[in-house]
């Protein structure tokens, strides 16, 4: 017999993401999902973001990695609650993993949850976690041609961080070309050139994030 289904393949993931989204909205906490290649500086960016915003906001971090607790321990050393998710081989986080991780956090006592996705420029793009915004980090040494090769992640990101900007002179990175391609893929996303290591440019990113956090606290942002 033939059975018509006509259902989204990721319906189960999307349904759990919706539950997460409602939970975040009720607690008034802004959740950002950071995506990047391995080595682009996700954890360093998170530490720089914490340093910039910890006086104003209560922050927690959910760390996604295939294995190990290295990143969560690094964050916890700074006195910030950190939950490690080990995906055990999976190349991206899914909404069910976030749901379990969030159980370990006191959402009502938080303003910002930063999720560090598994290092990968393809897989995390398809999976809604219930976050308010996906943001991607590209580091200068990876090259300005990455938006041509991995367009999907640039399309769905609400902001793009260009990290390791202090190394621009050393690498053959064409910033104008990069901005032009990203602008075509995603005209609305701001690009934040910064060095998470030196702190250069972190303020502009932190201001963008702070505006989004405020919007959620005031119930203006239910995206």
């Amino acid at each position: 017999m033939r059975i018509d289904i006509a259902k989204d393949v990721l319906e189960h993931n999307d349904a759990l993401a919706e539950q997460n989204r409602r939970r975040f909205a009720e607690a008034g906490v802004f959740v950002v999902d950071l995506m990047a290649s391995p080595g682009a500086g996700k954890t360093t960016t998170i530490l720089a973001t914490i340093a910039a915003l910890r006086d104003r906001y209560r922050i927690a971090v959910i760390e996604g990695d295939i294995a190990s607790r290295v990143d969560a321990e690094k964050i916890a050393e700074h006195g910030i609650p950190a939950v490690q998710i080990n995906t055990g081989g999976a190349c991206h986080l899914e909404s069910a993993m976030i749901q379990r991780a969030v159980d370990h956090l006191d959402l009502d006592a938080l303003d910002l949850v930063i999720v560090e996705n598994v290092g990968n420029l393809v897989c995390p793009t398809e999976f809604d976690l219930g976050e308010h915004a996906k943001v991607m980090i590209l580091s200068v040494p990876e090259g300005h041609d990455k938006p041509y090769k991995y367009p999907g992640i640039f399309e769905i990101s609400e902001a793009v961080i260009l990290n390791k900007y202090d190394t621009l002179a050393v690498f053959d990175f064409d910033e104008a070309e990069f901005r032009s391609v990203v602008g075509r893929l995603n005209p609305r996303a701001p690009i934040f050139p910064m060095s998470a290591k030196t702190g250069e440019g972190v303020a502009a990113w932190a201001d963008w994030l702070a505006a989004r956090i405020e919007a959620v606290k005031e119930g203006r942002d239910d995206a």
Binding site: I3, I5, V9, H92, E126
Partner: peptide
Amino acid sequence: MHEMGICDGILTAAVQAATSAGAS
């Protein structure tokens, strides 16, 4: 390999639909 997660979704939906239609 997000194809793994996508395939898992395909198979879950297919098996659910077949089961509720009494198919094996």
